Amino acid sequence: MFPGGQPNMQQLLKQAQKMQQDLAKAQEELAQTRVSGTAGGGLVEATVTGSGELVALTIAPAAVDPQDTETLADLVLAAVRDANAAAQKLQADRMGPLTQGLGGMGGGIPGLPF
């Protein structure tokens, strides 16, 4: 049984709908937000959305050596990884408070014992 009686199902549904709306809004904001990552002291810069989509890549002329394309490839990978790490942190910061307690059935919804 539930402490204090039965939960108000309408209230639970309202809370679930609000949580769904808040999550959708946060996801939309993440998709619109841009974060950057760099490598090689700024020779390569990658820009991704808050949801992790690569949207821009800038390579300084000084990073281009036709005899050493491996280093350039490494710099590009490092910049993209740096940008993705920034996007993941942004996601955690924005979505974390909205998704806490959703690990189990009913988690985070007042009135449910999970």
Rank of each mutant, 00 (worst) to 15 (best):
A92F: 11
E53Y: 02
G41K: 08
P66R: 14
G107M: 10
D65W: 04
L72S: 01
V48P: 06
G108K: 03
Q67A: 14
A86Y: 00
E53R: 15
G41Y: 08
G104A: 14
D93C: 09
L75V: 00
D65Y: 06
G104E: 14
G106E: 12
T69C: 00
L98A: 13
Q88H: 08
I59R: 00
V55S: 04
L77Y: 04
L43K: 10
G101N: 03
R81L: 08
L72W: 05
L54Q: 03
G40L: 08
P61T: 08
Q88V: 02
L57I: 03
L72C: 05
E45M: 13
G103V: 12
V76W: 02
A79P: 11
L98H: 08
E53T: 09
L75Y: 00
G96T: 02
E53C: 00
I59Y: 02
G106R: 09
M105G: 10
A73P: 04
D65C: 02
Q100T: 14
G108S: 05
R94S: 15
Q91N: 05
D68N: 15
A87H: 08
G52K: 06
M95H: 10
V64K: 15
S51G: 14
V55Y: 08
G40V: 07
A46M: 12
E70R: 11
P61G: 11
L98P: 14
L57R: 07
V48A: 05
P97F: 04
A86C: 07
E45Q: 15
G103A: 14
T71R: 15
A87Q: 01
D93A: 13
G52P: 06
V48I: 08
G103C: 00
A63P: 13
P66L: 13
T38D: 14
L77I: 13
T47F: 04
G37L: 07
A85Y: 02
R81T: 12
T47E: 12
P61V: 06
V80D: 01
G107S: 07
